[in-house]
Design a protein around this nucleic acid. Sequence first.
DNA 1: TCGTGGTTTGGATTATAGTCCTAAATTTTC
DNA 2: GAAAATTTAGGACTATAATCCAAACCACGA
Lengths: 192, 192
Amino acid sequence: MTTKSERTQQRIIDAANQLFYRKGYNRTSFTDVVDEAEVPRGNIYYYFKTKEEMLRAVIKHRMETTTLMLSEWEKSIKNPLDRLERFVQIMYDSTPALLRSGCPMGSLNVELAKDQPELKSDAKQLFDLFQQWLAKQFAQMGYPEEARELSLELLARGQGIIVIAQVYQDPGFLERGTKEINRWLENLDRYA
Amino acid sequence: MTTKSERTQQRIIDAANQLFYRKGYNRTSFTDVVDEAEVPRGNIYYYFKTKEEMLRAVIKHRMETTTLMLSEWEKSIKNPLDRLERFVQIMYDSTPALLRSGCPMGSLNVELAKDQPELKSDAKQLFDLFQQWLAKQFAQMGYPEEARELSLELLARGQGIIVIAQVYQDPGFLERGTKEINRWLENLDRYA
DNA sequence: TCGTGGTTTGGATTATAGTCCTAAATTTTC
DNA sequence: GAAAATTTAGGACTATAATCCAAACCACGA
């Protein structure tokens, strides 16, 4: 059972998570978070002394939900190809959000890579998490040597497609892009 | 011959251009620009009343230098394949800057796409400029129908590679990525 | 019941950002 | 070379951000 205080903290994290995604980390103010979470102004400092602390909590939260998601995929999907395609599918499923705010992981990293090295290294963990999971799938598919490189290539393809789809507000590009990735994955699987 | 005032304005634009790239638009303050350009605090407002105006001037400046660069490539390089590969080469040549601050065009668009729609549409022009030039080359190469799609795909590949190379601080990934793009372009050319 | 630690408030405080103003200096124009 | 326009210069002003504080509140065990 969760205490009221825990629930408040979670509300703050959820609000910050959303705002950091929609507005970016630097353009999100404490006031924004306080309003969104419906927490009285001063109270937020009881939970997070600084904005950086808040970001770390948000990243931790994303790490947890992502870890859960990936392990569920691993449990419910037996075939590595299908798992990789499941990954591609969340891209497609998230079209509206991606067109509006870009990739939550990519845009955060791009933002923090500018001049905020400590925070950047925190955000990078999110990439690591996906990268390692993807590499595992490629390895199981029959590419143990190339697994890391293939996982990076898959991530790069995803990032590129999302950036362009967002710039041109073009859901079709995202759709064609994900289909093309699937073709590539299926070929890899076939000739493994 | 340029007047002193014109040179001052240019110094401001250059300083802002660099800072927007290195620190991002939102995290760059007037104070930063003033310091970098070595212009007295109040003077900058004689040239740019608002920060947005300054960004627009920076984008205009980038548009001009890019236009010049592309038209010079067009003049000095006859073959569309070679022109496309010249484009890929600036990516490779810019490795240190890309690892530090990402793609100047991509990161600006990603930043402004969050919640700053008017500025975003200005930044998009930079993509349009490259996109149209690239499409022209693909058309000349023998793909008039697919030119736009191919140009978007080339841009997407570039963006993806840069993001991943930056996240992992991996110049090798950038090098392998650009080589792979060249292979792709050469195949397109061969079977046009 | 009381008190003590955790929690809640809202406003106060400080820093920084963006913007404006006005007077002096300089350049341009006649 | 004087008047007019442009440019310089530094500080003042306002808004907004992050952060802090101290009093009030509440829950629960002694």
